[in-house]
């Protein structure tokens, strides 16, 4: 069966792609991680500042396709202000969604990315920013907020 492009490129996704939210770098970041999708060369950098167990600020930068950039933009909207635990929960719920799972309520707008699950080669595009954030939250840091390794 063929999937319509409209399933993939939803309006919300294109909006975020054209006018991304939270683009750039966070001041006084406590986490700052860059990751690469080796199959396509897409790059995403996610920086954030955790204060009192909450993500006080988060931003992303990078070069990639509409799906990876929109996913990053929507992710920053979704996790800003959340506790680290809540953010981890969102990461897990988003992964679930990409594996074809039912959307959980906490995902909100992110459900627009559900169509990506039907395009297996694009799933990595959508999950790249999330994996990057997760790596940052896991504290793979050298004590000064820089990742130990690329």
């Amino acid at each position: 069966m063929s999937m319509g492009l409209e399933d993939l490129y939803r309006e919300v996704i294109m909006d975020h792609y054209r006018s991304p939210h939270h683009r750039g770098r966070v001041d006084g970041a406590t986490g700052d991680v860059e990751m690469l999708n080796p199959t396509c060369g897409d790059e995403v950098r996610v920086s954030f500042r955790v204060e009192g167990g909450r993500i006080a600020d988060v931003a992303f930068d990078g070069r990639g396709c509409s799906i990876s950039m929109a996913s990053a933009s929507m992710m920053t909207d979704a996790v800003v202000g959340k506790t680290v635990e809540e953010a981890r929960g969102l990461i897990a719920a988003f992964r679930e969604l990409m594996q074809g799972g039912a959307p959980s309520e906490e995902l909100g707008d992110l459900v627009a990315l559900q169509g990506v699950a039907k395009f297996p080669v694009r799933i990595k595009c959508a999950t790249l920013p999330w994996t990057t954030l997760e790596k940052g939250l896991t504290g793979d840091m050298d004590g000064e907020g820089r990742p130990r390794m690329g």
Partner: peptide, 12 residues
């Protein structure tokens, strides 16, 4: 248009 997106539309 990112090449991935282009390729996706072409595939369609």
């Amino acid at each position: 248009i990112h090449p991935h997106d282009l390729s996706q539309v072409l595939d369609q």
